[in-house]
């Protein structure tokens, strides 16, 4: 089984979010980058398939040179090889299209992406990729089992869980729950050394379409001060929620 894991390079979850002075771009100054958490759950599952079901795991990112440390980290976690498609993407459709060019050449059986990226929050790349390829697609994926050419997949729905079965090839949007938190792999020295020997291929981007453009970023307006209520004045709290906030 050939697995492709799509990796998005995102600011650490504790990062303060700032933008450049012209408000046109994210200010990367002093920001640590990580594997998008949803992608990390997916990668962990992919490495499980590699170890238990002899799958071959390739990681890919569409991005510039600054994304390579994250790809090396994926190799240290256990991916067999890495590909960087050399393009600073403008939107999710463009990413999906670039990935589809690769998938058409390589015929992966399973493509794992994250449910959404924590920076752009598009929740669009995996679905668009599946549609461009004509592959099956399940997002918000919390269970993934593969047997022969068949997948059994559960996804979280509003207020429950839905289980589907389908044939490969399949694209999934991974999220928390797909693997246990304790199964996330922290690269050890051996993994890091091995990662240096593994291949990281840079592919040129193929001309692709852009369907949306970000013209400006901004931060939410600062919030008003908190109203503190004495714990012995719960009546007053109920009054505030009812009359002031009008939420009960």
């Amino acid at each position: 089984m050939k697995i492709l894991v799509c990796i998005s390079n995102v600011p650490d979850t504790t990062s303060k979010i700032n933008f450049t002075n012209d408000s046109k771009a994210f200010d990367k100054n002093g920001v640590q980058f990580i594997i998008n958490p949803n992608d990390e759950f997916g990668l962990t599952r992919a490495v499980w398939f590699q170890q238990k079901q002899k799958a071959e795991v390739t990681v890919v990112t569409v991005g510039d040179l600054s994304c390579e440390p994250i790809l090396r980290k994926c190799l240290a976690i256990g991916a067999d090889k890495a590909i960087r498609i050399d393009l600073n993407p403008t939107d999710g459709f463009q990413v999906a299209q670039q990935l589809s060019f690769l998938c058409k050449e390589e015929n992966y059986d399973l493509i794992i992406a994250g449910r959404e990226s924590i920076d752009y929050n598009g929740a669009m790349v995996p679905g668009m990729l599946s549609a461009l390829m004509g592959y099956n697609f399940v997002t918000n994926c919390v269970v993934l089992e593969i047997k022969d050419n068949f997948a059994k997949v559960s996804r979280e729905i509003d207020g429950g869980i839905e289980t589907v079965s389908c044939q490969l090839p399949l694209v999934i949007g991974a999220q928390k729950g797909l693997v246990e938190e304790k199964d996330l792999i922290i690269p050890n020295m051996r993994g890091i050394m091995q990662a240096r020997q593994k291949s990281l291929t840079v592919l040129p981007a193929i001309e692709s379409d852009v369907k949306s453009v970000i013209t400006k970023f901004e931060k939410p307006a600062p919030k008003g001060a908190v109203k503190m209520v004495d714990p012995n004045q719960i009546d007053q709290l109920i009054d505030l929620l009812h009359k002031d906030a009008r939420v009960i």
Binding site: F93, A96, M124, G127, A131, R155, I157
Partner: peptide
């Protein structure tokens, strides 16, 4: 909703729409 976010990217590709 979970379902609307699931189908939106599929609809976008099938209509060649922006999303």
């Amino acid at each position: 909703s979970a379902n609307a976010k699931y189908l939106a990217p599929l609809l976008a590709v099938s209509l060649s729409a922006g999303y």
